[in-house]
Design a protein around this nucleic acid. Structure first.
Length: 474
RNA sequence: GCUCCGUUCGUCUAGUGGUUAGGACGCUGGCCUCUCACGCCGGUAACAGGGGUUCGAAUCCCCUACGGAGUACCA
């Protein structure tokens, strides 16, 4: 039997990292076993489902390359099938019509709660022979009254539920729309899902679903409930931390492989290994090493992993990503060096590509003013001679490459009997506006002769003005 | 309330009766160095609590505490 897993999100909110992690595990498991991965959109709740959310799910999974072998399938396309199965259950006595009103049920539950009992449907319509005129009934499942259901969960192990704890759940609403616990069973059965990998918030639903499988004469699939992902503070994931659309991570400059790597280590491990290529994940992933406890999302680690990926990323891709970020920021990338070369210079200096773009801005456009502290520290009269000599040396330099540029700066430092840093740092502030940049020779090469000389002259003038102002004041 | 589930450094985790409880992120000391990074060397910090079982428990059992989920004509 070939393995078939599925990811079945309901498009009622954005696809966030919790959902992605579940999808990743299901996808990895299918890949690992040479099986298929199905994407099913659970949109039976028409009130809350949105077209936008569906699009985010599709785009997000495409970005992460978590591509389904089948689907997207939509539950709203399958209503006739649910009806067919419900009718069968009715005909065989596994289900019955219930005419109770919402109010009636509320009263019933309130009374039970008062008595310290678990609120549950008491089966009052179980043996009703006649319909109630004018009332559209719901279809309820006739849960076995005795015995227990054993869930052999791949993650949680053996979990036993007493049927007496369960009640007769609604299968089909009065308007004919199936409920989750029913449609999910029909779908997983029809789609021949062998392994249901989903969030552990569904563990409690599992015995009910298993009972439905049995009533249908079907074999339940293997279940694996994966723990939830919490926010950095250990609270439920919210908009503040991870509960934003996954696509936001693309905008913030994370690489999809890095996000996947981060997510696979949330609740799963392979010894001490931290970095996994997608191929390695596929090769190594297993349900046995999935944790039982929820884990919280650590943004710093995501940043670190992303940086690791940037360092090793393909140069072309890095250039493309930097270009994309710059364009998004409204920068004219034609007005500066090739993004690919710039990205190379920043390879080890950025945790995200967005950060890289921010740092690289000075290659493409002029900065308005100097970083105050840096200017104060480095653009001083003592730096003047070095700046001028370097400018003069670079003006006549024939070969505009990092090495010869380095030689010019180095010899100026030597002739002034200064350490390289004493000469380089003022140049850095002069050309970048701030105290941080890639190695100075590389920076100048990328910046180009024209811009370099122009900015050097501007800095020289700046130092001159400052000296005059200081003299006037003091 | 009831049912089910969970609990190892701040965080992600290794660990399946005998370990100085290991690694990673973070933080931190140092080295490298033209800045920032990268890299390298070092430090910090954990078995929720209490009872058992055992020669011996992070590991097995029970209780408590805390956290989570379900208890819908949501999914």
């Amino acid at each position: 039997m070939t393995v078939r897993t599925r990811f079945a999100p309901s498009p009622t909110g954005f696809l966030h990292i919790g959902g992605v992690r579940t999808a990743l595990f299901a996808w990895l498991f299918a890949r690992r076993h040479g099986g298929q991965f199905v994407l099913r959109i659970e949109d039976t709740d028409r009130e809350r489902s949105t077209e936008e959310a569906i699009q985010v799910i599709l785009d997000g999974m495409e970005w992460l390359k978590l591509r389904p072998d089948e689907g997207p399938l939509y539950q709203t396309d399958r209503f006739p099938r649910y009806k067919e199965v419900a009718d069968k259950l009715m005909a065989e006595g596994h289900a019955y019509h219930c005419y109770c009103s919402k109010e009636e049920l509320d009263v019933m539950r309130a009374e039970q709660r008062e008595k310290g009992e678990k609120p549950r449907y008491d089966g009052r319509c179980r043996n009703r022979a006649e319909p109630v005129p004018g009332v559209d009934p719901v279809v309820r499942f006739r849960t076995p009254e005795e015995g227990s259901v054993v869930v052999e969960d791949k993650v949680f192990g053996r979990v036993v539920f007493e049927n007496a704890e369960l009640d007769d759940l609604v299968l089909v609403r009065s308007d004919g729309v199936p409920t989750y616990n029913f449609s999910v069973v029909v779908d997983d059965m029809d789609m021949e899902i062998t392994h249901v990998i989903r969030g552990d918030d569904h563990l409690n639903n599992t015995p009910r679903q298993i009972n439905i499988y049995h009533a249908l004469g079907a074999h339940p699939p293997t279940f694996a409930h994966v723990p939830m992902i919490l926010g950095p503070d250990g609270s439920k994931l919210s908009k503040r931390h991870g509960a934003v659309s996954v696509l936001e991570y693309r905008q913030e400059g994370y690489m999809p492989e890095a996000l996947l790597n981060f997510l696979v280590r949330l609740g799963w491990s392979h010894g001490d290994q931290e970095i996994f290529s997608v191929e390695e994940m596929i090769h190594l992933f297993d349900l046995e090493h999935v944790n039982k406890a929820a884990s919280s999302f650590n943004p710093d680690k995501l940043l670190w992993i992303n940086q690791q990926y940037i360092m090793k990323a393909d140069g072309k891709q890095l250039g493309l990503d930097l270009w994309w970020q710059l364009e998004r920021m409204g920068v004219d990338t034609k007005a500066g060096p090739e993004p690919e070369q710039v990205a190379e210079a920043f390879r080890q200096r950025a945790q995200t590509q967005h950060e890289m773009a921010q740092s690289a801005l000075f290659f493409y456009q002029d900065f308005s003013g100097y970083h105050e502290k840096a200017a104060k520290q480095h653009l001083r009269p003592v730096a003047l001679e070095g700046l001028e000599r370097v400018r003069d040396g670079l003006t006549v330099l024939e070969d505009w490459r990092a090495e010869p540029i380095h030689d010019v700066i180095h010899s100026v430092a030597e002739s002034l009997e200064l350490k390289l840093g004493k000469v380089a740092q003022p140049i850095r502030v002069a050309v970048s506006g701030g105290p941080v940049s890639p190695p100075i020779d590389v920076t100048l090469e990328l910046l180009g002769r024209e811009r370099t000389l122009e900015r050097l002259n501007r800095a020289i003038a700046f130092v001159g003005e400052r000296a005059q102002a200081a003299a006037a004041n003091g």
